[in-house]
Design a protein around this nucleic acid. Sequence first.
DNA 1: AGCTGTGGCAGGGAGG
DNA 2: CCTCCCTGCCAC
Length: 796
Amino acid sequence: MSDNYQENINRNTLLFGKDIEERIVGTHQISENKVRLYIRNGNAVESRDESYYPFFFLSEEMLLDGFAPANDEKYWLIKLQGGNFYRFLAIFKSQYNYRNALDYVASKSRSSSDEENDSGFPSNLTYSRGDAVTQFLLQTGKTLFKGMVFEDLYRMQLDIETYYKPEKSTRSKVSIGSDPIIIISLSDNRGWEHVIHTKEISEKELLLELVKIIRLKDPDVIEGHNIFSFDLSYIQRRCELHGVALRIGRDGSEPRSYPASIRFAERSIDYPFFDIAGRHVIDTFFLVQNYDVAKRSMPGYGLKVAAKFFGFASPDRTYVEYSEIADLWDKNPERLLDYALDDVRETEQIAALLSGNNFYMTRMMPYTYAQTSRMGPAAKIEALFVREYLKEKHSLPKPEIGQQHTGGFTEVFLKGILGPIVYADVESLYPSIMLSYDICPKSDERRIFPKILTDLKDLRFEAKKSAKEEKKKGNNALANNYDAMQASFKILINAMYGYLGFSIGIFNDYEEADRVTTTGQEIARRMIKEFESRGCKVIEVDTDGILFVPPPHIQSKKDEINLVEEVSSVMPKGITIGYDGRFRKMISYLKKNYALLDYDGTIKLKGSSLISRSGEKFGREFIRKGFEKLLDEDVQGLHDLYVSYKEMILNHQWAIDDFSRTETLKNTMEQYTADTESGKRPRSITYELALKRNLSVNKGDRITYYVSGSGLQSSHYDKGRLADEWNRSKPDENTQFYLKRLDEFTQKFLPFFKPQDFSSIFSSDTLFSFSPEGIELIKEIRHKETDSVDDDDIPF
DNA sequence: AGCTGTGGCAGGGAGG
DNA sequence: CCTCCCTGCCAC
């Protein structure tokens, strides 16, 4: 794979090398607005005259080969890799203040005497894929002018309802465009709301009305929850069926859609991207998921769940089940219209909360707002590099082949039920190391890496300061904007380390990535040693954070803070340890798996073995409640809990949500069948179920299922049933299987008891009544000696 | 086509 | 049974 990939780079790379200019053999100015560029492989490129914009001439052909501006020989724009449009725009933005450029374009278009067109752009400007300048201008539109703040964007929200009659009650996917659209609800960020529906007009008229409204309101941004995969795809399909031209672009063009994908940590989602000329389409579904990558605290990503999570859902909000929509439309349409409006209102609030950082990021990126919103951070870092290199007329390197070898230091020293607990962590560990230890990729001959990092750090500092000042003055709106700004800097700062080890980043450097992580490990060891030497019992260390029990004479919070500050003061220059919280108790279970009991009584569980969403809900609850009992040292309560769960399972006294499991399908069905048939991967219950039920599933889809049948066999992959198929009055879930699952969950409590105590607690044997008498909790288990932390060769 | 990294645990199928 | 290997999910 990697060999193929390298070959691909070589084939697609036109101008990589020591110096870009070496490949340019000559330019010839044909007229004021035309230039011919000759490059070494013999291709001659003639520019087109783009009279409305004198700075650049870009065309499809030029994108393929390269171009030079007519009036200024200093600037070159070179194609680097197939399809990597963004690498061009880096220079486009960096050489000229693009906001001024856009002001210029806007003034031109305003003065053009063109009455037919209400878009603000000349109508002779046709929108086509290859025309980079046109595309750039139309996409950016008038939305990113100098001095703008996020609130200045005119944002419109859109949501559709379709007439879906559930036939067989399975939640199998509805295919795009199969049912008519009955309601389109719209709102904007200035308090306007509007709903159109098919009680009075036909679906075709509804679609025409939508086009009319969008063109009349002329929003800069169109927002929706799952708008790419659902609303826009659906609207487009219905328009096709009715022969309606969806002319919602600022130049009157129809949306251009192409397959794209987006990644959230380990998951990758395919979706059709919609490019609407002159506007930016923002999917709040992606914003929400991106938010949760860092936080990992949301119960789900649907609009309703997200709105509740962020506290936007109004108490009298209308809720309608997906399967009820058609029925409700026939019987009580008013309620459905209310529901539809609630959707757009919530979408607006989510976007307002989560879009600010993308907006401010766009100002420093050679991408449009829409692109910035759906792009990963590594590509953004690279854009900053490319901008600087092109500005300095320096060539760009190829990615290095290889891999990173090390990561963070993780160790558990003590297991059990421990307390009191102090949590401390190194502030911005990797960025601090990169700054203090002069990290820079070797291919970065101009040494841009440290410069970008320092600049971003300073910018963030300034933005944070401004946010604070504005807040003090009571300017909350402005303070929020500065806060969004500093958040966007933070995202980039944190992504810079990841970029070093990014396999196709052109400035990657695995050795430097390793140098960051190994330095981080050394710092972690040093931190352990310093806390230990001050009488602390270190429990767990993970990368940059440490959990420990302070010595007995450290009692108050203030003492704890002083202790952390003392250790911080002996750390290497540029490395600061911050006090990050205190807890009454904790349960240390495994690496990256523990429970924390706050002083206000709340419990936080961490780690995949304790809170994994792939497990059954009843299991997670059982563990959570059990850990509560454990923290209370309530052995009787633990036993009672076990017995009550066992009875619940035996008597089927539960709901489908309690025992169903939801899994994400990471591969396509084709990939799965190919892999299983070749023996490359084992069969999996979710894919098998999708095959059996003939569900049309895509990569990234989630299936909720349970295990049916009776008895325990070695494999259950053919015993799955869809959650919707479960019937409370005729429960057919596999009781033995779920009892076995309960016993698997009880294993989490194994380390805290003697074996015979453990088996008497987790037994419902009624012959002998259970008594907690004599059962002792194992509170402290030495798992690893801190002495083994070797710090002899720490080069400080 | 586009893509930030490593470390760690659980679960399940397959095969010895 | 046990081990191996893969996937999915999570911590940082």
